[in-house]
């Protein structure tokens, strides 16, 4: 029982990341009809927004420490962040410690801008082209973005820790009456899950309760009619692309303390997120969220030693296996609209 609970918890944070990425993907597909293979790269760029802000906050000047030497035997040059000079060492260190949450503020405008530029500069030229063309061009774009990040930040993962207040884990098992140490869960993963739930809720509320959202939903249902009513739906869809980029970016920002970001992290999530979108139902926002959590939890279960011992290799194929079963029995996905992907 405790092992099952543990894997459900594990699946929640992984599912949160899948759900956030898939939400953006399905928003773009639902509004613009574009299959965006560069969406994983947006997740990765979000993570690198956190890296960039961390580096900006730790911009330093060198102070020579005569009492210590560097690897060549010269007096050691110690980096002292400018923030220490401005706010004092304690306050400066606290600001640097909170770099990842602060990056949310930094990432939102940056990601919206990147999203809008990407849509206006490249994607809009492919609206009327076949999905295969869209996949090729967006996949190419993803590789270009990856290589740009690698050029500037290197290929190695870059540590971007959570604030000290959120390091460590709490004993969830002890809380609900199990033996101590049977179900432990890191604080930051809990933060990530709560953050994902907040973002997902905000996106749904935005689409459901604002006029802008209503127009977008109308556009998703019948783009032509909305256009005939004199509404500039293209402009709104461009903004939605920026919003989807921001959602992916924020998912990336908050993911950095879980795994040190590297240039390739977007690709690792991209394929799985597409499976999530297809399983959830192309164009269905609730479907994307549901499938994200479902597949995240399933993947966690498949990684259990007992399951691997029973069916070797299941941890590597479970998601695709489930996708095949769902698509065979229900081609439109779990919550897809009738008719979509069924012809």
């Amino acid at each position: 029982m405790d092992a099952i609970l543990l894997q459900v918890l594990n699946g929640l944070d992984k599912g949160s990341a899948y759900a956030l990425i898939a939400l953006g993907l399905t928003l773009i597909f639902g509004t613009l009809g574009v299959v965006n293979f560069a969406h994983g790269a947006l997740f990765m760029i979000g993570a690198f927004c956190a890296v960039t802000l961390s580096r900006l906050l730790t911009l330093s000047h060198e102070v020579i420490d005569e009492t210590r030497t560097d690897f060549l035997g010269n007096p050691l040059k110690v980096d002292v962040p400018y923030l220490y000079d401005i706010f004092g060492e304690t306050a400066g260190a606290a600001i640097i410690d909170w770099a990842v949450p602060l990056s949310i503020l930094f990432a939102i405008p940056v990601m919206i801008l990147i999203g809008v530029v990407m849509e206006r500069g490249l994607i809009k030229h492919f609206y009327k082209r076949p999905h295969a063309d869209q996949i090729l061009v967006t996949f190419g774009l993803a590789i270009v973005l990856q290589e740009i990040i690698k050029y500037y930040y290197g290929a190695n993962p870059i540590p971007t820790p959570a604030p000290a207040a959120f390091t460590g884990s709490f004993d969830f098992g002890a809380l609900i009456g199990f033996e101590p140490n049977t179900i432990i869960y890191p604080y930051w993963r809990l933060v990530y899950f709560a953050f994902a739930a907040l973002i997902i809720g905000a996106v749904f509320a935005f689409l459901q309760f604002t006029t802008f959202g209503m127009v977008v939903r109308a556009g998703m249902a019948d783009r032509e009619t909305v256009g005939l009513l004199g509404i500039n739906i293209d402009k709104r869809f461009t903004i939605m692309f920026g919003l989807a980029a921001a959602v992916a970016g924020l998912a990336g920002v908050m993911y950095t303390p879980i795994n040190s970001p590297n240039y390739h992290m977007g690709m690792d999530f991209l394929v799985l997120s597409f499976v999530v979108v297809v399983v959830g139902g192309m164009g269905s926002l609730p479907g994307a969220v549901l499938a994200g959590f479902l597949l995240g939890i399933l993947e966690s279960f498949a990684s259990m030693r007992e399951v691997i011992d029973l069916i070797p290799g299941i941890n590597q194929v479970i998601i695709y296996l489930v996708a095949i079963i769902i698509l065979l029995t229900r081609p439109r996905g779990l919550m897809g609209r009738k008719g979509v992907m069924e012809d």
């Binding site: 918890l9 699946g11 944070d13 993963r189 390739h264 992290m265 999530f269 966690s300 691997i308 590597q316």
Partner: peptide, 23 residues
């Protein structure tokens, strides 16, 4: 007590690490 194989470039190892204490 156990030896578990993990896929290359796994990314997130939490589902492999969480059961360690239970073992």
């Amino acid at each position: 007590v156990a030896a578990v194989k993990t896929p290359l470039a796994q990314g997130d190892f939490s589902s492999y690490i969480a059961p360690v204490l239970q073992s």
